[in-house]
Nucleic acid binder design. Structure first.
Lengths: 236, 236
DNA sequence: TTATTAACTGAACATTCAGTCATTAAAAGC
DNA sequence: GCTTTTAATGACTGAATGTTCAGTTAATAA
């Protein structure tokens, strides 16, 4: 047995593909598949069907490879799941942190930008399926849940907390960024994305026939949710 | 094959146990197990491990019976799942509807009572695991998701909407009960209960060693969340 | 051309588990 | 006691699927 954690990709994959700056000329057959593609396909299927109901053969099929090829890049199904979470979260939070550092306007505007940015970069993309996936599987994969909690939730909460503190320091917000307020601020958007990826097909509120109208209605709802929480933050 | 829906309990169970007022004297061996116990055990395990990761043998073991006995009461695992949802939701909403009809005070007080009641009757009990379960499995069980959406979510939303309208009609609330506001009002509590049943063991915010202190902190957080949304509803 | 290396394949294997059923147990009627 | 009826059991089965690996393909190096 290898001495690596079973939730990490096998080393050769990391060496050959992730660190592409290999100085030597490669030998042998060139790779046909990018492991990032496998992870992206796995994310889609995990989000759509759940972890257990997703067959590795379907992931492979979606990526245009065979089932065996998956095992060249990931030790196990759980390792693939871990990669899905890791790959999803790494690029997702940097933007928000940069935004917060550069902002100079009002607290309400900062909060609007943060929440809209979260929706654009995560809520409205395929990454929006990750929260549902983690809620569903956190108890079955404590290691991955801990990673997600530490690297995504904690960092996201810290971001919101700093934004609330910013508005509080300027005298615009009634409260400072305690954990409970932070959760209440994120709650409407988080719940929205959770519902979208679970009851989305059941909920008949949106006109399913016209995707552009649905997107329009969604934007309106997001805006309303954001204004709702800002109203709760601001002074009377 | 029976002509009943596969998601309904087998008829004999309903006849013999649910309708206990059978006039005839029963013959044969008396039942040792109450199907409600099976459903309760299934709820616990489904919530803890997820639908797929829960083995029927474990459900049976938790209820003190054998796997075969489960099939005397439920046609399949999916039927057991449906019973879990159905049994959970039936008694859960009546209280809220009665409360709303009898209330005469301010809109904010009504909202406090409603949300606290929801927390006491659902959020803080084993039923609080149902939302997580449904979020996780809605796509895999469209029938059950539709049932849950129609009988739980829609009715719960209607309740909140009427409470907002009540406060709005009295001139206390800024807005009427549009669907988006309703969701924003429920969001903090719903998200809290979702997190409790997924990341609950990972989140180190609460002191896990002292359950009474944890319950105390939880009550404080619920109260803060409720006041947060009421503040967003009320006039400036 | 031939050897070597790496990527890839898919049939076979091993395991897990929902669902079945022949059997046993416990009650009531005769 | 004997029969009938219902409850309960747990070993068994079959299908699904995660995992493995001997073999194949496609590239470079000699």
């Amino acid at each position: 047995m290898s001495e690596h954690s079973p939730l990490l990709p096998v080393p050769h994959a990391t060496d050959v593909h992730a660190a592409d700056a290999h100085p030597l000329v490669r030998r042998g057959r060139p790779a046909l598949v990018d492991p990032a593609t496998l992870v992206a396909c796995a994310l889609d299927l995990f989000v759509e069907k759940g972890y257990a109901a997703t067959r590795l053969e379907d992931v492979a099929l979606a990526a245009g490879v065979s089932k065996g090829t998956l095992y060249l890049y990931f030790d196990s199904k759980a390792a693939l799941f871990a990669a899905v979470v890791r790959q999803g979260l790494v690029p997702a939070l940097a933007g928000g942190e940069a935004l917060l550092d550069s902002h100079r306007g009002s607290g309400a505007d900062l909060m609007r930008e943060l929440l809209w940015g979260w929706w654009r970069l995560i809520g409205a993309t395929r990454l929006g399926g990750l929260p549902k996936l983690m809620v569903a599987e956190a108890r079955n994969f404590p290691d991955i849940a801990e990673l997600y909690h530490r690297e995504v939730m904690a960092r996201g909460c810290a971001l919101i907390r700093r934004a609330i503190d910013y508005g509080h320091a300027r005298g615009e917000f009634r409260v400072a960024g305690d954990p409970c307020t932070v959760q209440a601020v994120m709650a409407p958007l988080l719940l929205r994305v959770l519902m979208k990826h679970s009851f989305g097909c059941v909920d008949h509120a949106a006109p399913a026939d016209d995707p552009s109208a649905a997107a329009q209605a969604e934007s309106t709802d997001i805006a309303a949710s954001i204004e709702f929480v800002i109203r709760a933050l601001e002074h009377d």
